[in-house]
């Protein structure tokens, strides 16, 4: 099997069962997904990183999944990639390191997302 998911699906299979109208549509399948969403947005909103940087991370995480050998990929779970992107960014930006400087304390002031 190819690692390219574009070739993995059956064109006749139709859409996912969750492909329904507006009514009763779940935004999140589990509370941790909602939490992970809120955490990533909050850190960006309060100036810890530009949103674009998170987005690039997410694209990278999903790309790595798509390029991996099929048997290593497992099930598609969007928010696992979201969490991987978030954790990587928190590490790289040193948010949990001693001496991390909060955005409002940085020279030149905070660049707020809004």
């Amino acid at each position: 099997m190819s690692g390219d998911h574009d070739d993995d699906f059956d064109p006749e299979a139709g859409f996912h069962p969750s492909c329904v109208g507006d009514v009763g549509r779940p935004d999140f399948d589990a509370p941790w997904q909602r939490r992970a969403f809120g955490l990533a947005v909050a850190l960006s909103e309060f100036g810890h990183y530009p949103w674009e940087e998170f987005q690039q991370r997410l694209i990278g995480a999903i790309g790595a999944w798509q390029d991996a050998p099929s048997d290593a990929e497992g099930r598609w779970e969007y928010y696992e990639h979201w969490v991987a992107a978030l954790s990587g960014l928190v590490d790289d930006r040193g948010l949990l390191e001693p001496g991390y400087v909060m955005p409002e304390d940085r020279e030149g002031g905070v660049t707020h997302a809004r």
Binding site: R35, A36, F37, G38, L39, F46, V83, L95, L96, M102
Partner: peptide, 27 residues
């Protein structure tokens, strides 16, 4: 995944990067 997210938020709160209400407010 749930544990990872919970731990990450708890650490960020503990270090004072965000407050206990930040994520709820944004959501």
């Amino acid at each position: 995944s749930a544990a990872q997210v919970r731990a990450l938020e708890a650490l960020l709160i503990e270090k004072g990067v965000i407050s206990g209400q930040t994520v709820d407010k944004v959501l």
